[in-house]
């Protein structure tokens, strides 16, 4: 499955300062579709290069990280249960506080 992953608000520092990642993710064994839960585990293993605790806490993203699936807050699509489809764009963004 072809996906575009984007990291922002400082999260890109966890993946070699690269903001946009075009990736190919296979369906997990025996699963009918790819959920955000699968994808987070995949990102943790294949994309995050350092300080994973700055990205994940338990099985979800750490506090202060917004997840957007096709420009829409994942809270509105079922969070970890959100189903991901071909060509989806998933954005992970850390909230900023500076000014």
């Amino acid at each position: 499955m072809q996906l575009t992953l984007e990291f922002g608000g400082g999260l890109e520092l966890l993946c070699e300062s690269k903001k946009i990642h075009k990736v190919n993710v296979d369906l997990p064994n025996g699963a009918d579709d790819l959920t955000m839960k699968h994808l987070l585990a995949w990102v943790r293993t294949n994309v995050i290069k350092e300080r994973p605790e700055m990205f994940l806490k338990g099985d979800t993203v750490r506090p202060g990280v917004l997840v957007l699936v096709n420009d829409c807050d994942w809270e509105l699509s079922g969070q970890l249960e959100t189903t991901i489809e071909e060509k989806d764009v998933i954005v992970f963004i850390s909230t900023l506080h500076g000014g």
């Binding site: 922002g8 608000g9 400082g10 605790e53 700055m54 750490r62 506090p63 202060g64 990280v65 917004l66 963004i93 850390s94 909230t95 900023l96 506080h97 500076g98 000014g99």
Partner: peptide, 29 residues
């Protein structure tokens, strides 16, 4: 909010919309 080369903007607590805590119930590390 702004930092480095990025910025973010939204309006909270307007007309039944979310507040800051609705979005970020737990503070970041």
């Amino acid at each position: 909010a702004a930092l480095g080369m990025e910025g973010q903007l939204t309006v909270y607590n307007h007309n039944g919309g979310p507040c800051y805590r609705c979005l970020f119930p737990t503070p970041p590390p």
